[in-house]
């Protein structure tokens, strides 16, 4: 199923003010993988994500999504394939009601009538937000907004799900629910996050970006055990891998040593 593959070769991006955000990034993500892109603030994570659905154009380098190289002609197909959930759900929800918002994508895909209803119903059902369909987005809580934002993207049946900081701004319960939800998706998933515990739980593979370049790319657990590398990239181990604040015993590490 080559159409779920993301292939980025030597991607560079320089903003118009001269900031070099990406300096030669090469990544290949295959079907069904769940990958986290982590790194300190300003290392180019969001810039990289915005390339995946063609919002930003590469200064140099190429991107292939499935069978298509990313060009102006393939943009519509690529935007259907890559579902992107933005960090701030307020940016993503702009229609008068939740229903209208979730229907926006399918309508743009050319669906009509009951097909749209079906898609919207299914997507809201999947994120557990069917009861919100008639509500205006600005009356929802943070967690509900996030769920609806995900539904707006699911309604387009994307093959690849890209999410910028999925757990930011959620309370612990909302975060746990969202993680459970994401676990159930069998799409190719690409996340950026500072929530390293979530990364540890959801993503078997992690890519560290540092100053616009890839500092590491490998199994998540291996990367999080390399404290020198993490420190160099202004990161630290997930809290669950750090010692207990009272007795300083590290439960996770002792498990792995056995």
């Amino acid at each position: 199923m080559s159409h779920h593959i993301v292939d980025i070769v030597d991607l560079c991006h320089t903003y118009s003010d001269g900031t070099e955000a990406l300096r030669g990034v090469s990544v290949r993500i295959t079907h069904g993988e769940s990958v986290a892109i982590i790194g300190a603030n300003g290392t180019g994570k969001s810039t990289l994500l915005l390339h995946l659905n063609g919002y930003l154009t590469a200064t140099s380098g190429t991107i292939r999504i499935g069978d298509f190289p990313l060009t102006k002609g393939t943009l519509p197909e690529i935007r259907r394939t890559v579902g992107m959930v933005f960090q701030d759900p307020d940016d993503q929800l702009f229609m008068p009601t939740v229903y209208d918002d979730v229907a926006f994508g399918p309508l743009n895909l050319g669906l009509v009538g009951t097909d749209v209803d079906q898609r919207v119903g299914d997507a809201l059902e999947r994120v557990g937000a069917a009861h919100l369909r008639t509500k205006p987005p600005y009356r929802l809580s943070g967690g509900e907004k996030k769920r609806v934002a995900i539904a707006t993207v699911l309604a387009m049946s994307p093959d690849i799900l890209v999410m910028d900081e999925p757990t930011s701004g959620l309370d612990p319960y909302g975060r746990r629910q969202l993680m459970q939800l994401l676990k159930e998706f069998h799409h190719t998933k690409i996340f950026t996050s500072h929530d390293l515990d979530m990364v540890l739980e959801l993503c078997p593979r992690t890519i560290i970006l540092h100053r616009g370049m890839i500092a590491a790319d490998g199994p998540t657990e291996e990367i999080f055990l390399n404290t020198a590398l993490l420190e160099e990239c202004h990161l630290e181990q997930p809290l669950s891998m750090q010692g207990c604040p009272i007795c300083n015993r590290n439960i996770l590490l002792s498990c792995q040593l056995k």
Binding site: L50, P76, R79, D91
Partner: peptide
Amino acid sequence: MAMLARGFT
């Protein structure tokens, strides 16, 4: 950007 991402043409 969010509109474009959802196929707005």
